[in-house]
Design a protein around this nucleic acid. Structure first.
Lengths: 235, 235
DNA sequence: TAGGATAGCTACCCGCGAGTATGATGCATG
DNA sequence: CATGCATCATACTCGCGGGTAGCTATCCTA
């Protein structure tokens, strides 16, 4: 990434304002490498599953040895945890972002769900969705549960707000949130990078389904969703 | 089960019509025990996950030794496979059953989804949903993929039929099937037997969500679903 | 130029768990 | 009684993989 510019500088002893400069750069280098380890782990977990991936596999993918991996991460469990966090963070960010927006709750929910879908289809999606408490120590399991719950509660809240402001059809927030999140989470099970659709496109298609519902709509309300669909089906 | 009546008979040498009678009974006994092994495995997989469950665990739960388990099943992989089949069979049955019914496709789809939800919330639900190709030999993985695909195609077909007969809002069958199945599959991740709702009730709630959609309905069409919901929310 | 921190490797330990060799028990048949 | 089959246990093998001990190389700093 930024290695190409930063490295030669320090190697050639550029005018150093602070004696800590080189140190900071080394730390940043280390961070870059650490992230590479996380990504390699996510990639491997994606393809072969957590339990079928050995740390030797991950090391081999990075063309280093196993102790090198342990130099950047304390153990396998933490590796999974980091992948989980990397996967779920964009969703949390989406909630924060949307909190400031002045729009009907349904639109804010849609924005969140779009990011949600993209996150699940990302390289960390598998880890986020499949990180199981059974595979983790109680402490990490607790962290993960808390983060998951935060997302769940966020969706329920948007649903309640939507029902109140009239932008969402009356519904049971808990069950509806389960249904929405479940459908999106499940993307991680079938989505492959090579697919023709991107994560955003899938999220968009799902949102269309969720919005219109299965029962045919009559009159003025089946406007956008239905028209978009007929366009999609036409090509 | 039927052991109480059948065993004494054979032990007491009841009038035997055929010399194979005792043999048949022994075979049936064996089948009963075999199923007990499968169920114990499903139970353990449910709680601790496939990879965190050893065959010693399963044996211990049955109060037998590991070789006894191997006497009824050839290896761990097959154990998972059997659980998967036990989980998915009710869904296949639902499709067969519904094929004969003369109803709008949306109602037939609903019937299937109800069984689907119950199956996922059953004791084999976890195994059905989580059986991963990575954990299985290519042969079994192929079987499982075929069965999963059969279900998927069945849902898509019902959706297409529904769009044609007008009982379902125009939609992309592929994406809609993914959304529906995903939401239902995900039940296995959060459902616990102790929960207040049964699998059937959850399926019912989900169907309500899918049918109405998030966008508020106006006029005559928000009849059943919305009324049902206001009842639910009232108590 | 010595000393120390950083980064990485080879070679190992060791426990867990899948699967098995072998033998004991018991029941039916001849 | 002897033979054979079915059922199950004890006690093992063995490889995989998480994790570590200890050595080496490099580079920065004093």
């Amino acid at each position: 990434m930024s290695r190409e510019e930063s490295r030669p500088e320090s190697a050639a002893r550029a005018p150093r304002e602070s004696p800590w400069r080189a140190n900071r750069e080394r730390l940043r280098d280390r961070q870059v490498k650490r992230e590479a380890v996380i990504r390699a782990a996510a990639h491997a977990f994606n393809r072969k599953g957590y339990h079928n991936t050995s740390l030797d596999d991950i090391a081999a993918a990075l063309e280093v040895s196993k102790p090198t991996v342990y130099y950047y991460v304390s153990n396998k469990e933490q590796l999974l945890f980091e992948c989980f966090v990397a996967g779920i963070e964009p969703i949390r960010a989406a909630f924060r972002e949307v909190r400031l927006v002045k729009e009907p709750a349904r639109n804010r929910l849609k924005a969140v769900l779009r990011h949600y879908g993209q996150a699940v289809a990302s390289e960390f999606g598998w880890c986020m969705v499949r990180a199981e408490d059974q595979d983790l120590s109680p402490a990490m399991s607790g962290h993960i549960k808390a983060l998951k719950s935060e997302i769940d509660q966020g969706i329920r809240r948007l649903l309640r707000e939507g029902v109140q402001d009239g932008s969402i059809h009356p519904c049971d927030p808990k069950m509806t949130a389960f249904a929405l999140a479940g459908a999106l989470n499940w993307i991680a099970h079938w989505y492959r990078e090579s697919q023709s659709l991107s994560g955003a496109q899938i999220a968009e298609a799902f949102i269309t389904v969720f919005e219109s519902g299965l029962i045919p709509r009559t009159g003025a309300e089946n406007t956008r969703a239905a028209r978009r669909m007929s366009v999609r089906l036409a090509r």
